[in-house]
Design a binder for these strands. Structure first.
Lengths: 342, 342
DNA sequence: GGTCATAACGGGAGCGCTCCCACTCCGGGC
DNA sequence: GCCCGGAGTGGGAGCGCTCCCGTTATGACC
């Protein structure tokens, strides 16, 4: 394996100069730099990240901790982050928790991350206070995507606002009986989005002078099949809602499916709206509140890169905009907001 | 930052013993080992991968090169691989090509991978001969997932067989006019699956004594929207097929959508079958030929791990089984195999 | 008691870089 | 002619581990 010494010998220079030349540091004549580069290429020299890391204390690697890579949302964020990291020559170490508590434990508790990465991106998880402790001790830039955590660098959307946007759309259309399909905050993964979106739902009702009906709030588990379950629960009632607001597009799609099975026409008999602008939303003509997914990954990556460049960097809280995308699953209720004829 | 020396000083032993104790190497009394472990834990000692890597030449990291993380199939494979790698204490470096030729070039040509990872997993790409050269020079275990490449370690399904399984199902039901929705092999990413599946389609027709009709083979780009385009082309014909075999579930779902738009009943007027058993297949009641996605990632990871453990390991070609999953999008043609009444 | 495995541990030379601190050389200003 | 500053370069310590050889203690065995 050719090392820096081989290159140095070949160009009859010191390893110090070769190192400087290859890393574009000043203090090397252009002519020498060119010769070094050419020789390195010819010899197929590749610097050892381990050695460089040992010497500098930097690994040019950032860790991304994700709950489930298989979910479109997370994969898209990862993709965004990877793009900008690669541009800057950083590698991306993927830690997929996959709903496994022990995996989560391992990644956070044993500070495996230490000395291994220069920065950490945490997706949609609200770390426990223990975990936050570990992250603090890392003493490396950390950015949380998709969760609101005061004092930390975060990139997210305003979930409550997104929920209110969706609700306003339904309310403006004249709906008053509006079902909510959300998810619990419990379990291995503590997202903050569910809570905020639920709050947005409730506030909107209150603001519109509609009395809240607990039975219209059901758990959809943030999955399609969960959305189906929730939809059955909502629509099998004697007094079903005229519209359903699902806290995610995937659940909304589940609702659509059940509506169709029950013979309900969408949007005539039932309006459905989601949040995300999932890649399938267009396919299903789903009205939704779009959030910039890919972009959140990019911004988060840029954030940690910036933090690594200057030490005075202070945690920023970036809130990206959302936008109502009206497609064809929402319309005014048939009977002016009352129970639709079935 | 506490290093191995600090631990050594604390337990009044040499760094050598601490190193051995912590890595469960023989030659350390159980009592010492326990003391070392306890002390290391107490001091919050975490070994530096850079230093260890420099000394051993191993990084305990494997690279995974993937065309698009955002596609369910790839994400699922990555998830499978990550699982077994994490179990063994290996980290996973993700290289997402995202259809970007320059990214691909960078990953392969500049052998960035060298000295950075102990092994490489390549997903669904058929590396060019140049790229294979680089991989050979890596001199590290490489496994290709989802492509057939003689002489290389591969994990895949028998794509041609899968296609024949799908076709047999349709033929057995009595279909004779069967459309094919596939994809081209061109472009940045050269998968081998499209070619093999097309071959399976053609062979099946020939074997069944049905004459091939080029107009029934259309390009669906392996995406839902591509599947929609393809479906329009196929079903708008004066003599539409009674069944469509899509080379992927996503395209099949696109076909379903268009069929519904055109007022065709599935499966009465049109049978549709796919390949993959995508997470959405169940949702759409799609008949398909299932392939073990997650498992392919696991097996591939196990393969490189095995290869790293013993040097005599020879490239293995693992072919995982597929299975017909009959749901509700396939049935006998209405008019015994002829053109359905429309 | 002497010999000799064997178990347990220590010393210290690397691993391949980076980076601090020289050192040399050369041209301009006085 | 001398001094000085800056550009270009070299020497070599050190980053934090691993691992090859020692060395020492401990018993078993004759």
């Amino acid at each position: 394996m050719t090392g820096i010494k081989d290159v140095a010998r070949e160009v009859e220079m010191s390893t110090a100069t070769v190192s400087r030349a290859l890393r574009n540091l000043p203090g090397v004549s252009e002519e020498t730099r060119a010769r070094v580069r050419e020789t390195a290429r010819r010899l197929g020299y590749v610097p050892s990240p381990s050695a460089a890391g040992l010497a500098t204390g930097q690994t040019r690697t950032v860790a991304v901790v994700v709950p489930f890579v298989t979910q479109w949302f997370f994969a898209a964020v990862v993709q965004g982050a990877e793009e900008v990291l690669r541009e800057r020559g950083y590698d991306l170490l993927l830690y997929n928790l996959a709903g496994d508590a022990s995996a989560r434990h391992r990644v956070f508790e044993t500070n495996l991350l230490t000395k291994r990465v220069d920065a950490v991106l945490v997706l949609s998880l609200k770390p426990s206070s223990d975990e936050l402790d570990r992250l603090v001790h890392l003493d490396r830039p950390v950015t949380i995507v998709g969760a609101d955590l005061p004092g930390w660098a975060t990139v997210r959307i305003d979930d409550e606002l997104a929920a209110r946007t969706a609700m306003r759309h339904l309310l403006d259309l004249g709906h008053r009986r509006i079902g909510y399909v959300g998810g619990t905050t419990e379990g291995v993964l503590d997202f903050t989005a569910p809570t905020a979106r639920l709050a947005g739902y409730r506030d909107s009702l209150t603001a519109a002078g509609v009395e809240r009906e607990p039975a219209l709030e059901v758990d959809g588990d943030f999955t399609m099949t969960g959305g189906m379950r929730a939809a059955r629960e909502l629509l099998d009632r004697p007094d079903p809602p005229t519209a359903v607001f699902a806290a995610s597009d995937e659940m909304a799609i589940g609702v659509l499916r059940i509506a169709r099975e029950l013979g309900l026409r969408v949007p005539e008999d039932l309006s459905v709206i989601g949040i995300d602008d999932h890649e399938l939303a267009d396919f299903f003509d789903l009205t939704t509140v779009a959030q910039p997914v890919h972009e959140q990954g990019r911004v988060a990556a840029q954030q940690v890169l910036a933090a690594m460049r200057n030490d005075e960097w202070k945690p920023e809280q970036v809130v990206l905009p959302t936008e109502l995308v009206v497609r064809r699953t929402t319309a005014a209720p048939a009977s002016g907001g009352g129970t639709p004829g079935r």
